[in-house]
Design a protein around this nucleic acid. Sequence first.
RNA 1: GCGCCCGUAGCUCAGUGGAUAGAGUGCUUGCCUCCGGAGCAAGAAGUCGCAGGUUCGAAUCCUGCCGGGCGCGCCA
Length: 553
Amino acid sequence: MSPSPAATAPLDVLRGALRDAAHAVGGDSQAGERATLERPKRDDFGDYATNVAMLLAPVVGGPPRDIAGKVGEELQTRLGPLLERVDVAGPGFLNLFLSDDWHAAALAHVLAAGDAFGGGEAPVAEKINVEFVSANPTGPLHVGHARNAAYGDALSRIFAFHGHEVTREYYVNDFGSQIARLAESVRARAKGEDVAEDGYQGDYVQAIADAIPDAATMDLDALGQRSVALMTERIRDSLHFFGVNFDVWFSERSLHEPKPALAGQDPVTHAFERLAELDQTYAHEDALWLRSSAHGDDKDRVLVRSTGDHTYFASDIAYMLDKRERGFDRLMYVLGADHHGYKARMAAAYESLGGDVASLDLLIMQFVHLVERGERSSMSKRSGEFVTLDDLVAEIGVDAARWFLLQRSHDTTIDLDLDLAREESSDNPVYYVQYAHARIASVLDKAGADRVAAALAAERAAVAMHPAEKALVKKLLMFPAEIAEAATRRAPHRVSSYALELAQTFTAFYRDCQVVGAEGDGVEDLRIALCVASQTTIATALRLLGVSTPDTM
RNA sequence: GCGCCCGUAGCUCAGUGGAUAGAGUGCUUGCCUCCGGAGCAAGAAGUCGCAGGUUCGAAUCCUGCCGGGCGCGCCA
């Protein structure tokens, strides 16, 4: 074994050899760079397979299988004993069979990286603002917000792990007519009266009224602010309990107040001036319009109504400018499904402010349906009230809630099966993954801390590896690519899929390979090392999802 | 009418150009002297909505259609 086996990532060794081999056969073509290097579905197709010969065929001419043969020879020369053999298969695939040494070096690489394994690989580190949830502080968070919260938070964790700098931000809509409506609703409750038809009807309104001693008499505007503050506190607490914490709670109201940094100007006026400088607005019929149709929107949008009132969109654009002036490389908005009609105007606003839409992400979360006893309850209880985030967490717990909300792509509607999520058994994927983690803790505990430390420090003997051991090593090696994929495609569900697969692969290894007391020179060392690497990687994946990693269950 | 998302196993869903399309769940059948059985194995189960096109190769890319969800205010 070489002195520093962990220095180069094992897949990079393969990738490099593949590139060189492709150049040797195909000259300057980019085939080596574009070639796939993937785990094939069947074991007899090798540890890894590549389509490089099919890509070279049009360049060098000749049958892909002949070209594959040449590339195979080049690969064998470059990889030497790391490559056991290479087969030409099917239309011209190359199937690579890696040696035990290569697998051992790969495991050493994973262990050396520790809990940083899979992270820090972003090619360019960006400063990213992720705005999510941003529910109106006029009522408690419901299940749709829960999905938004779980998603935005997991995405933020993945970005940070991948190497970006992330700011989590919540936009508090504490301004405008809905606040007055909330104040009136609270006042009615405080007086023991019925809430108006278009007011807020929920029980939480009474709770707010009860918490404000002079709610029946105080100034309506002050009551609105007091109510919003209480509601925002409650939302903050719910999210905190759900494992979601924001760096910035941004007040919409503050956009309409003078700001010292703007020489006493308010941000909305500041934005209007900026847009005027850029010739992005015009006056028409006593209103102020944004030329949004020049940037892909269906029509121009009003910023100031003929009545002189600002539209909600005016606040949005002022807020967007504020973010831009704070120096983010990327603005990300996690929006509810009912907001997708706003995508075009938000993108137009961004361009109007001089932004490049390539650095703007508008992500639409699809709906959540709750299913119980096979019936859709479509987010609402018998009473007509929404099922809240707090209800959901009380019902199935934080871990199951986050897992079930995160295991599917954000752009598909999900049916959340409460009965399954409540199940504390192997039927429930989140328990299955946590169980693997706890089981490893138990095995390592049985081996003893000293034994584990010795195993990790040991010179790795030349052990003939079991297929289940090799499969586990290769599954571990997939993690960095999964993280990169999850980050670039804004897809936290890739991480939960991977966590489940890794837990399954570990469990197969555990079934086939006795760890503690394993016979043979260096075998127990190897298996303990595999346990440690697996536990660390499972823990990292669960941490990115915001799911706990219990040592005992 | 226009726009966005979705259509893959009974159900819930992975799979954004590769070989015989996968997982969970449900169903059938096995497995507990054994490091955690909260587990494991095997089996049955699919016209990848339909029809064209692009190419060595399409669930994946393009076009049209069908079906479902959502959205289209000088509301917030």
